[in-house]
Amino acid sequence: MIPIALYLALAAIIFSIGLYGLMTQRSGIRILMCVELMLNAANINLVAFSSYHHDLTGQVFALFSIALAACEAAIGFAILLALYRMKDTISLDHINILRW
């Protein structure tokens, strides 16, 4: 069987990729995608532990989390759309009107 450590390592790698993207990218869509990556890395962990412990709750929770991720993505893209309409860009560097 595949040991759990590998699932966890995979999740960690995916999370780190998301993290890297989150920290370096400036485009709103890329950042949203990176956030999705990080969320799903967490989901992998949930499913992995659920499977190893024979407890379906983790998988149910992963489902809920996916649904919430869908919400988040929908809202996020809607915001980006509105921003694009206003500023003609989705580069987050230019969304600083509330900044000092």
Binding site: M23, L92, W100
Partner: peptide, 17 residues
Amino acid sequence: LRQFQTGVVQNYATVVI
């Protein structure tokens, strides 16, 4: 000090990580 409060979530994430 307010330079730290960039308002850019990415910077916060960086610091947290």
